[in-house]
């Protein structure tokens, strides 16, 4: 697993992908910080995190599109599947590599916190809560993207399907809101799947165990699905 983790992480920086990803995260993060400090003139770091929600949502496919699909296309999955590594080891190794890059990206918020601390005294517990929320959100989204990547040989299809799912994730709350009253049971169910509501809890300073469990279980379930996809390929 560690070999796969290291290789995947290195390969982000073999091409432009890793740099582009980090550039996007840093750019938008910095922009929101600038807006926060320059225009709104507060030391409220939560707003940066809540604004980053959609940025994280739409950059995650960049991280995950290549993870398994490229192995499927280049037949390097043969090397992985015939090596003494479990299927879980393969998937979790890849997942952690993407998660690591994501982590490096959002570590920029530490810099924002330091900048804000230099000028005022922001609440660090608030920052910590936000940061944890962001990590969990990222883990859940990466697992979804990895699962989609495992199902195809094409990076393109992996990326586009991941974008579609990310868009759906973003729209969940709106969909729940516009459903007619006869379908209220459905709207409750859809709202329960929302990523935005639990994430907004984090950004507003609520550390709710159920939210933590929700994101972690999404990550675990989709990684498990990805493992099943590998398993299925053997039997088909």
């Amino acid at each position: 697993m560690s070999a796969i983790f290291r290789r995947e992480l290195q390969s982000y920086f073999k091409g432009p992908l890793g740099y582009i990803y980090l550039a996007i995260i840093f750019f938008f993060g910095g922009m929101y910080l600038q807006y926060q400090v320059g225009s709104v003139q507060t030391n409220e770091i939560s707003t940066i995190f809540s604004n980053m929600f959609s940025i994280v949502l739409f950059t995650t496919p960049l991280l995950t599109m290549r993870l398994m699909s490229e192995d499927n296309r280049q037949k390097t999955d043969q090397a992985l599947l015939t090596a003494p590594v479990s299927l879980g080891g393969i998937i979790w190794g890849k997942f952690l590599a993407a998660f690591m890059l994501f982590f490096i990206g959002i570590c920029s918020t530490f810099v924002y916190f330091i900048v804000l601390s230099a000028m005022s005294s922001p609440d660090w517990t608030m920052f910590a809560g936000n940061f944890v929320g962001m990590l969990l959100l990222g883990a859940a989204l990466i697992a979804i993207g990895l699962f989609l990547s495992a199902m195809t040989e094409s990076q393109m299809i992996a990326a586009i399907s991941a974008f579609a799912v990310m868009f759906l994730v973003m729209m969940l709350d709106s969909i729940a809101a516009i459903l007619p009253t006869q379908l209220s049971f459905l709207s409750a169910a859809i709202a329960a799947l929302s990523f935005m509501t639990p994430y907004n809890d984090f950004t507003s300073g609520i550390l709710d165990a159920s939210n933590i469990v929700y994101f972690i279980s999404v990550a675990v379930v989709f990684n498990y699905f990805a493992i099943r996809v590998l398993e299925k390929k053997r039997w088909s």
């Binding site: 796969i4 290789r7 073999k14 091409g15 043969q78 015939t82 090596a83």
Partner: peptide
Amino acid sequence: YLPEHPPLYMDMTVDEYLSFMYDLK
């Protein structure tokens, strides 16, 4: 195992690849 299509990571150097396979195995 050497499969029909050698399972090579095209973006790695030979050394990096063999080192990766060494760890993987």
